[in-house]
């Protein structure tokens, strides 16, 4: 049984603004019966000042879908369209004193219906490109599609990295097996796709097999980083090797690369290439100064 707040129960058992309103001039329809939830939002908007005079909803869905729809109409009545568009899923959830993680998508539907209604009022096309996968991390409501895309985009290789990028797995940790499976799948694809990569295959590939001296390792690391640099310089950034300490490789991210998000993505990419060249697992981390540059966020 879901742990619904009193507010959710109230809005489910006594929905506000249920039904379509007469004389609506903004209609948003989202969802589908095959997905298990759908919402039709009808608004009456004052054409002079774009204020929402009245709102009504019709919802096919579970208790929290109905409660979220009811909450949405209560929140946006009296707002201008501009203001209403700023209402986030979190605002809807907060209005209801929270929703279970698995039910956050219900509040997303409300927001989408609102966007669709505004587009309808303004005579624009509204299209939805969001895709939802199976919920993997229940603590932070992260689904499989988001995890997979993040792994792909950032060349992630460990559960820990996935947690850092998406929060998935950062709570009770019961989903780590699920995250590992997605990682394994993407990494397998990467392995088969590798030969077609634009970069020439590293000359040291066979070296991966034998045991390398520290000097050999550092040389390979240097060569790999040298190969990456032109790419980064094109984006007005750069990277330099600072130190190698066992399995940890310290680098400095310079210029455009030192912004947090970009740096993290680039580090992942560099790490991936060094791992391939060395044939061993290493971690590439920013040296102290570079890490400092991110601290301001």
């Amino acid at each position: 049984m879901w742990d619904y707040s009193e507010k959710v129960k109230d809005h489910f058992f006594n929905p506000r603004n249920a039904g379509a309103i007469d004389g609506a001039n903004a209609i948003g329809e989202v969802g589908s019966i095959s997905c298990g939830d759908a919402l039709r939002l009808t608004l009456k908007v004052d054409p002079d000042n774009e204020r929402i005079l009245d709102a009504g909803f019709q919802t096919f869905g579970c208790g929290s879908a109905i409660a979220s729809s009811s909450a949405l109409t209560e929140i946006i009545k009296g707002m201008t369209l501009e203001e209403a568009l700023k209402v986030s899923n979190q605002d809807i959830a907060d209005f209801l004193d929270g929703l279970p993680a698995e039910k956050m998508h219900c509040s997303v539907m409300g927001r989408e219906a609102l966007q669709a209604a505004v587009a309808n009022f303004r005579g624009e096309e509204w299209s939805d490109d969001h895709e939802e996968g199976a919920l993997i991390c229940k603590c932070f409501a992260v689904d499989a599609v988001l995890i997979e895309e993040t792994i792909r985009a950032n060349n992630l290789t460990t559960v820990q990295e996935v947690t850092h990028y998406t929060k998935a797995g950062g709570g009770c940790s019961s989903c780590h097996e699920g995250i590992e499976e997605i990682l394994a799948k993407v990494m397998a694809e990467r392995a088969t796709a590798a030969p077609v990569a634009a970069e020439p295959a590293p000359a040291q590939a066979p070296a991966a097999k034998g045991k390398l001296t520290n000097l050999q390792r550092i040389r390979i690391i240097e060569e790999t980083i040298e190969k990456i640099r032109p790419q980064l310089q094109r984006d007005r950034g750069d990277v330099e090797l600072v130190d190698v300490d066992g399995n940890t490789i310290y680098v400095n991210m310079i210029g455009a690369c030192s912004g947090c998000q970009m740096a993290a993505m680039t580090l992942g990419g560099i790490q991936q290439q060094i791992v391939e060249a060395l044939g061993e697992l290493v971690r590439v981390v920013p040296a102290k100064q570079a890490a400092h540059a991110c601290g301001g966020h």
């Binding site: 589908s32 019966i33 919802t59 109905i66």
Partner: peptide, 22 residues
Amino acid sequence: RKLSPYWGTKGPASESFAPTYA
């Protein structure tokens, strides 16, 4: 069913309700 966009006054209304994405 009264709350459902797929239900009309007497029966299914699915013909008239076709959301933007399915």
